[in-house]
C-alpha cells in the first residue's frame, strides 16, 4: 500500500498541483518579475532593475503614508471589534430569551458587501455631519472614525459567532467550581473564562488583523482616500498607482510585492502564535 501510494503520488497530486501552478505560482512569479520592469501589459515588459522600488519608497509618493494610516486603522479596529464581539458573545451565551434572533441580527451585516456598506455609511455619516455644516471629507479624522465604525459594523457579528463557539466550550463545572470557591463574576471572567478561550481569542485577533490590514472596498467606497489621500490605505494606494497613474504600473507592482512581504510576515507570526496556543490548550 505504502509503496504504490508513493509510486502514484505524482499522478494523484497532478490536478491540484497543476491548478496551484497555474492559478498561484505562475502569477506570483510573473508579478515578481514585473515589479522589476516597466510595462503596460504583461507581454511588453522592459527590465529596469530596482528603480520601481526606489520610486515606491520615495517619501513624496504617499505609499509610506498609507502604511501609517493602515496601522492606525488596524490598531483601532482590532481592539474595538474584539471588545464588542466578545461582549456581545458573552451576553448572548447567557440564558436569555431570543438570543438566537439576536445572534442572527448581529451576524447579518457580515453578509453585505464592503462596497455597499461603504456607500451606505457614507450617506449616513454625511447626513449626520450635515447638521453641523460639514462633510465626511472635511477632516481626515471623520473618515478615520467612519472607517472604524464601518469595520465594527461589518466584523463584530462574525467574530461574535467564533467567540460564542469558544464560550460554549468552557465546561460549566469550572464556572460552578469557581462560584463555590466564592469567585465573583469579574474574577470568573478573568481567571476562568478568558484563559479557557485563549485559542479563540488568538484566532479572532489575527482574523481581524489580517482583514483590516488588507481592507480595500470599504476604504474605496467610504472616502476613496479623501481628504488629500490622508485616509488612503495600502491596498487602495496600490490600485490607484496601478490604474490611475500613467507609466507607473511597475511601481504599483513593486508596492504590491512589498505588501505581500508584510502580509506574509503577519501570517507567519499568526501561524506560530496559534500553534503554540494549541499546545497549551
Amino acid at each position: 500500500m505504502q509503496r504504490s501510494l508513493k509510486k502514484y503520488f505524482p499522478l494523484f497530486v497532478l490536478p491540484t498541483s497543476a491548478a496551484f501552478l497555474i492559478a498561484f505560482l505562475a502569477p506570483f512569479f510573473i508579478g515578481l518579475y514585473l515589479s522589476f520592469t516597466k510595462f503596460t501589459t504583461i507581454t511588453n515588459a522592459e527590465w529596469v532593475g530596482l528603480q520601481n522600488y526606489q520610486r515606491a519608497l520615495d517619501p513624496n509618493d504617499g505609499f509610506l503614508g498609507s502604511f501609517w494610516f493602515t496601522i492606525l486603522v488596524v490598531v483601532a479596529s482590532v481592539i474595538t471589534v474584539n471588545l464588542f464581539a466578545f461582549t456581545i458573545a458573552k451576553l448572548l451565551t447567557q440564558k436569555l430569551r431570543g438570543t438566537n434572533i439576536f445572534r442572527t441580527i448581529y451576524f447579518m451585516p457580515n453578509l453585505i458587501g464592503g462596497i455597499v456598506l461603504g456607500y451606505t455609511w457614507q450617506s449616513m455619516i454625511n447626513a449626520v455631519l450635515a447638521n453641523y455644516g460639514t462633510t465626511l471629507v472635511a477632516d481626515w479624522k471623520y473618515g478615520y472614525i467612519g472607517l472604524i465604525i464601518l469595520v465594527n459594523w461589518q466584523q463584530v457579528g462574525y467574530m461574535m459567532v467564533i467567540y460564542i463557539a469558544g464560550l460554549q466550550n468552557v465546561p460549566t463545572e469550572l464556572n460552578e467550581a469557581a462560584a463555590i470557591d466564592g469567585a465573583g463574576r469579574w474574577q470568573t471572567l478573568r481567571n476562568v473564562t478568558i484563559p479557557m478561550i485563549m485559542p479563540t481569542i488568538t484566532i479572532c485577533l489575527f482574523l481581524t488583523l489580517s482583514s483590516s490590514f488588507k481592507m480595500f472596498d470599504q476604504n474605496l467606497a467610504l472616502t476613496d482616500g479623501a481628504p488629500m489621500d490622508r485616509t488612503q490605505m495600502v491596498a487602495l494606494n496600490i490600485v490607484k498607482t496601478m490604474f490611475s497613474q500613467i507609466g507607473r504600473q511597475g511601481v504599483g507592482q513593486a508596492k504590491a510585492v512589498l505588501f505581500v512581504i508584510v502580509v506574509v510576515a503577519i501570517a507567519l507570526i499568526q501561524l506560530r502564535a496559534t500553534r503554540s496556543r494549541e499546545v497549551e490548550a
Partner: peptide, 20 residues
C-alpha cells in the same frame, strides 16, 4: 496627465469648498 492628477485636483477643490 493622469486620473491621479484629476483625483488630487478634486480633493483640493473639496478642501477649498470646506474652508480648509
Amino acid at each position: 496627465p493622469s486620473s491621479k492628477f484629476k483625483d488630487d485636483f478634486a480633493q483640493l477643490l473639496a478642501q477649498y469648498a470646506s474652508g480648509n
